[in-house]
Design a protein around this nucleic acid. Sequence first.
DNA 1: TCTATTTTTTTTATATTTTGAGAAATTAAT
DNA 2: ATTAATTTCTCAAAATATAAAAAAAATAGA
Lengths: 260, 260
Amino acid sequence: MSGFQRYKKILDLFSEERSSWTVLEISKSLKSPSSTIYRIVREMVMAEFLESASGSYFRLGPAFIKFNRIIKFSDPLVRAGQPFLKKLANENPITSVNVLARLYGNNVMCVADYKSPSFKKNTSYQRGKLMPLIYGATSRAIIMQITGKRLEDLINLENFKSDEDKKNFLKDLKSDRKKGYCFTEGQVDKGLIGFAVSISNKKLGIEASLSSIFNLDDFLLEHEPLIYANLTTYGLLVEKYINEIFEDIQKYHHETNSIG
Amino acid sequence: MSGFQRYKKILDLFSEERSSWTVLEISKSLKSPSSTIYRIVREMVMAEFLESASGSYFRLGPAFIKFNRIIKFSDPLVRAGQPFLKKLANENPITSVNVLARLYGNNVMCVADYKSPSFKKNTSYQRGKLMPLIYGATSRAIIMQITGKRLEDLINLENFKSDEDKKNFLKDLKSDRKKGYCFTEGQVDKGLIGFAVSISNKKLGIEASLSSIFNLDDFLLEHEPLIYANLTTYGLLVEKYINEIFEDIQKYHHETNSIG
DNA sequence: TCTATTTTTTTTATATTTTGAGAAATTAAT
DNA sequence: ATTAATTTCTCAAAATATAAAAAAAATAGA
C-alpha cells in the first residue's frame, strides 16, 4: 500500500451502513499493524478527513462537507442545472423526481436531485449515490453520447446476463441516440419509469443527463408529449448555462493569470 | 511536504472562487516541480479526489460527493437533527433560518440548515461553511458548553479587538451558560438576529448547537417566549434522538463484532 | 481513589517510497 | 506538418514509512 492508496483504503471502509471504525478494526480489516494505522489515522484527523468519536471510534471528517460545498457551488453542471430541477418538477404533468447525473469512472453519479413534495416513493437517485451504468433512462442518456472504443471499454466492464442482452442493449442505445431521448420502465426501481435526455459539454468534459422519474401508476400516455417537451427544453437550457459558466471561468482564469 | 499533507495542500487550493487549477499553476503555487505534481495529481484523479476538466484544468472529484453523502446519512447529529429543522421553522412565529452547527477544530461548521421559503435575505449559515468561533449565537451556544483548559486554548487562538473585549466575551459566555440559551444581534450578518441552544452528547463527542435566525425587522419582543420554547423543546428532542442513534450504533457494532 | 485495561504515542533500524531533473512521448493547436 | 503544450517516464539520491516493542496516556472498573 503506497501513495494516496494508503489513505484511500481507510476512507473506503466507511459507508452508510458502517460509519465508525476503531483503529484496531481498521488494522484487522486492512491486515496492517495497528501502530501504522494509528499514525495514518492521526494524520487524517489532523487534516480533518477523519474525526474521532466516542469509544475510540473514528468517523469521516468535516473536510468532506467543506469540499462538497465547494463542488456544489462551483461545479458547472450543478451550478447550471440545479436551479432548473424544481421548475422542471413543477411543469411536469404528474409528480416526479428530477435528476442531474453524470459519468464518473465506470458509474453514473447523481449530482443533484429535486423531488416533488407530493412524490411518495423513495427512488435510488439521490445526490452522491452511484448508479449502474446500464440500467435506467438516467444512465442510458449518458452512455448513449459515448461512442467508439470508449463505449466498448465501458460496456466490457459490465456483466450482462447474456450476449443477447448485450446486443439488445447496444441496439436500444443506437435507436435512443437517434431519437434523442430515453425511456425505461422499472430497471432501477420497481413501479417507477424514467425519461431522460443527454447533457454534454465537450470543452468541460461533461457527459451527463437530465431525467424525470415518475410513478408508473400515475402515468398516462397523454402525458408523454409534455414530459419530452420539458426535458428537451430544460436540457438545452442547462447546456446553454453550462456554456456561459464555461466562458465565465475562462475569463476569470485569463484575468488572474495575466495579473499574477 | 510529506504524508497526507502532500495531498491536502493540493486540495486546499480549490475554493469556491477558484475551482479549477492546472498542474503548472499548482506547481507554481506550491513551489514544487511539475513532474512531482503531475504524479500526485494523477494518483488523486485515479482515487476520484480530483477529476480532469477541459484545457488541462483539474477540479475536485466525485469522491467528495460520495463521502459527503455517507456523512449526511450516517452522522448522528445530522441524522437526529435534520428532520426537525423544517418543523422548527414552521412553528417559529416569524420566518427563519434554522441551523445545526458543530465544533470542528477551531471553527464552527454548519452541518444542516433549513430556510423558510419566504425568508428572503441570504445568511452566512449554509451547510459546509466554516463560521467564526466567537461571533453569533450559533457559535456561542457551542462554545459555552466548553470549559477549563480546552476553552482557554480555543479562545487564545482568536483575535479579540482588546483584552476588554475578551473579558466581556467570557462574562457573556458565563451568563449565557446559566440561562441555557444565547441571543446575538448582527454579529455575523447585518440586520439578522440569532437565538441558539446547546446540543451535546459526551459519548459521541458532539459539541453542537441548534439555532434560529430571524430578520431584525420582523422581530417583536412578544415573539421571544415562543422562540425560546421551540428551541428548547427541539434541542432536547434532538439530544434524545442522538442518544437513540448512539444506542443503535453500539448495538450494531456489538453484533458485527461478535459475528465477525 | 487506585488498579487494570485499553488506546495512543514514541522509538528504533531497516525497507520502501518519494523526489525531481531532464528526456521522451503524447496530445492539442496552428 | 510543424510547433507548442501537456503528460509520462527514468533513475539515483534523499526522504519517509514501516513495524515491533516499549512507554505513556487515557479510560474504565472496583
